[in-house]
Amino acid sequence: MASEEQCEKALHVLADQLAASDSGRSAGFDRTLSCTLPDLGLVFGGRLVSGRLVDIERTDSSAAQIRLTMSSDDLLALVDGELKMASAWATGRVKVQAGVRDLLRLRSIF
């Protein structure tokens, strides 16, 4: 099980990766996002602004337009490239709760 500090750092690395990979296809995609890590009992929140993840902080609420749920180890594996988002979602290791349009837009970001 990863620590809170490792998970927060991983989310910031993810934010950097998203910013570096953005080729303009996510312009105007602005949503609130939460990442729940049940094994640690933690929730991190932030905002996707034109495909960039900003304002990442620990929060008490998972209420967001896009809600991700995964284990702390899966978060680290996703960021390290050891786990692909599509296969993690398909196998239930990552749960995504979002509207249909948001899910389609997320595919182009992750």
Score class of each variant (00 low, 15 high):
H12Y: 13
L14H: 08
L14P: 03
D16V: 12
Q17E: 15
Q17L: 15
A20L: 10
S21G: 10
D22Y: 14
R25I: 09
A27T: 09
F29R: 11
R31W: 10
S34Q: 05
L37T: 02
D39N: 06
L40Q: 04
L40V: 07
L42R: 12
L42W: 02
G45V: 02
G45R: 04
G45E: 01
R47Q: 14
L48T: 01
V49F: 08
S50N: 13
S50G: 12
G51F: 05
R52C: 10
L53D: 06
L53F: 11
L53M: 09
V54P: 00
V54N: 00
D55C: 00
D55N: 11
I56Q: 02
E57C: 04
R58L: 13
D60K: 12
S61Q: 12
S62G: 10
S62E: 13
A63N: 12
A64S: 15
A64F: 07
A64V: 09
Q65M: 11
I66R: 06
R67F: 00
R67E: 14
R67S: 12
S71E: 12
S71H: 09
S71W: 02
D73Y: 00
D74Q: 10
L75G: 03
L78T: 05
L78Y: 05
L78G: 08
V79N: 06
V79A: 04
D80C: 09
G81S: 09
E82C: 09
